[in-house]
């Protein structure tokens, strides 16, 4: 009360030391190392089991030969074209899905009546397994890129749209009010507060959609005869059913897995790089 503690005129709060970065990066490196140890261990186990003659090497060739095959396959022009086809379908599919899902998600997240109106249609369509659409789309569009795209887009739209919707809906009304109090227009509030605030959610949606999209591309290629891509390559090689083609099937599968891993790591890096401010991205990295 009257006897107050001496109050310096300068800021009473001293500068905080820079955030400790080191322990986190060390912990991260340790986690990566442990993860790598697991992978190396599994590879060694596969190698030993295969070479010991416990199983038929036709079904389980040594991992080293699978890996070697995966590398030498790149010399095969057909395989390269197939990988390119899968990648292009994936990239186009993701771009189209984002172009549709993000604006729709923003609108549905901002305007409750729009959400209520769209909900029935969305809930009806969402449970349809994308792959179940293959025969129908094949009938209409044939086995080309368009067919694959339609199905990939259908699969990738939902996670992006729902994450955008929740992200937009989750924007702190307080922050919006702050912007409004400075005379920022309705559209300005969307552009300067709502979208940046929802962005980490959207990117998480894109990451989820991305792994689904890759799975769906390859599945569609596998089941739709005549298509191009890694899945089609696997499907063709399997038909020969000899040791060499078996190796090729495994090598193509490993390639697909690595592709998914690289894409996932890339998006994870983007999330940490650009959305480090977001608590979920900070804590969950």
């Amino acid at each position: 009360m009257a006897i107050a503690t001496p109050a310096p005129p300068a800021p009473t709060t001293g500068p905080t030391p820079p955030r400790a970065q080191k322990p986190r990066s060390t912990a991260r490196r340790n986690a990566v190392l442990r993860g790598l140890a697991g992978v190396v261990g599994l590879i060694l186990l596969l190698e030993i089991v295969s070479r010991s003659g416990l199983v038929n090497t036709n079904f389980l060739p040594p991992f080293s030969s699978v890996l070697w095959k995966a590398i030498t396959l790149w010399g095969d022009e057909v395989f390269r074209a197939d990988v390119l086809s899968t990648l292009l379908t994936y990239v186009y599919g993701m771009l189209i899905a984002c172009a549709i899902a993000i604006p729709v998600g923003v609108v549905l997240g901002m305007f409750r009546p729009a959400y209520r109106g769209a909900r029935a249609i969305v809930e009806l369509m969402r449970p349809i397994p994308p792959v179940a659409l293959v025969p129908l789309v094949l009938l209409v569009l044939g086995a080309g890129l368009e067919m694959k795209l339609v199905i990939v887009v259908f699969a990738a739209i939902w996670p992006i749209m729902f994450n955008t919707l929740y992200g937009v809906h989750d924007v702190d009304p307080y922050a919006k009010e702050m912007a409004r109090s400075f005379g920022v227009s309705r559209f300005g509030v969307i552009r300067r507060v709502v979208i940046p605030s929802a962005a980490p959610f959207v990117v998480t949606g894109i990451r989820i959609a991305s792994s689904i999209a890759l799975i769906v591309v390859i599945t569609v290629e596998l089941i739709a005869g005549g298509a191009q891509g890694i899945g089609a390559f696997i499907s063709r090689e399997r038909a020969f059913s000899d040791a060499e083609s078996y190796l090729a099937v495994l090598a193509a599968t490993v390639t697909a897995g690595l592709l998914g891993l690289v894409i996932n790591l890339g998006i994870g890096w983007l999330e940490r790089r650009f959305f480090g401010w977001d608590a979920t991205a900070r804590g969950g990295a």
Binding site: D172, Y174, A175, M178, V193, P196, S197, A199, W277, D278
Partner: peptide
């Protein structure tokens, strides 16, 4: 303040 400042 934690809600009125924009964390990004």
């Amino acid at each position: 303040y934690s809600r009125s400042l924009l964390p990004w």
